[in-house]
């Protein structure tokens, strides 16, 4: 890399990481100040773990993210398997469009649209508040599933199509062939998709903001409420923890991806060997 490139990269990454570094450092600040570092302390972490509302919000966020991930991973994988085999061009275009909508629409539109429908349907049934855990779960599954499909579909398309056929020729039922042959092949895609769904759900604020009821507060909504008032470094401690959790998830998904790529390479090598030997 040229020196000028190095300097430029340095400036850009400095810009990207400066605010995060400030957060991390000041989460250990003894004083309340966000500009003068006085002494090192874990005070704000201790206070964070004493804050009931925040802990409940963490629990809620995890429950919601886990449920949304489970539903969207299963539904998304099934959908990808179905879309991959669709013969009707019309149906395929319709599915692609519908998958694109939640990803390209601004979050605020997705949030508002779901909220309006929930409120309307709630009114029909005469419910006083129609927004609760279920409506949030529906919203999260709706924006997570397209990302699962997007991860699984390419794996299905890369797969050697004769493999499941061979399994069936050898006596497997189609369902068994799917479980034994196709599923292990597309597993890396499913895992990456699930991790993406999980992190997206954890991170989402805008859609949650519009579809959450009063009783169910997730972490981003809690952070929003916290930043409306003056903020203590407690929030910085929280941000630091979130940062390291997501960093770990990112590294894990990278490892899965690398593994997958290595396997692909090995397979190609084997094929070439066979070709040269035969």
């Amino acid at each position: 890399m040229k020196l000028s490139s190095k300097i430029y990269s340095g400036i850009i990454f400095g810009f990207l990481f400066a605010p995060i570094a400030v957060l991390l450092i000041f989460s250990f600040n003894d004083a309340k100040s966000l500009s003068v570092f006085s002494d090192f302390s874990f005070k704000w972490y201790v206070e964070l773990f004493r804050d009931r509302n925040t802990l409940t919000a963490v629990k809620n966020t995890l429950v919601l993210a886990a449920s949304a991930t489970a539903v969207s991973t299963v539904m998304g994988t099934l959908a990808a398997v179905g879309i991959n085999k669709l013969r009707s061009r019309w149906y395929r275009t319709a599915m692609n469009t519908v998958t694109d909508i939640p990803m390209t629409n601004p979050d605020i539109i997705t949030g508002i649209s779901l909220m309006l429908m929930f409120v309307f349907v709630g009114r029909l049934f005469g419910a006083a508040t129609s927004l609760n855990f279920v409506t949030m779960l529906i919203a999260h599954v709706t924006f997570c599933t397209p990302y699962v499909i997007l991860q699984v579909l390419p794996k299905l398309q890369q797969m050697d199509k004769s493999l499941p056929e061979a399994a069936m020729d050898l006596g497997c039922t189609p369902f068994r062939a799917f479980l034994k042959v196709e599923l292990p092949e597309i597993m890396p895609g499913i895992i990456t998709g699930a991790i993406m769904a999980f992190t997206l759900s954890l991170d989402d604020f805008v859609i949650s903001y519009f579809t959450s009821g009063t009783g169910f507060e997730t972490l981003p909504i809690r952070i929003y409420a916290m930043t409306k008032k003056t903020v203590t470094p407690k929030m910085y401690a929280l941000a630091t923890i979130i940062f390291f959790v997501t960093l770990t998830l990112l590294l894990v998904s990278n490892v899965v991806d690398n593994d997958d790529r290595r396997k692909l390479k090995e397979k190609k090598k084997e094929k070439n060997k066979r070709r040269t030997n035969g």
């Binding site: 099934l78 398997v81 179905g82 599915m95 519908v98 649209s113 429908m117 309307f120 709706t142």
Partner: peptide, 23 residues
């Protein structure tokens, strides 16, 4: 395969298309 796709088709219709109509 169509059966596998059904839940997602129904879901998208109910929670992607219909909400946009609600706007």
């Amino acid at each position: 395969y169509r059966t596998a796709l059904t839940p997602y088709s129904v879901w998208s219709l109910l929670f992607v298309i219909v909400p946009l109509i609600f706007i």
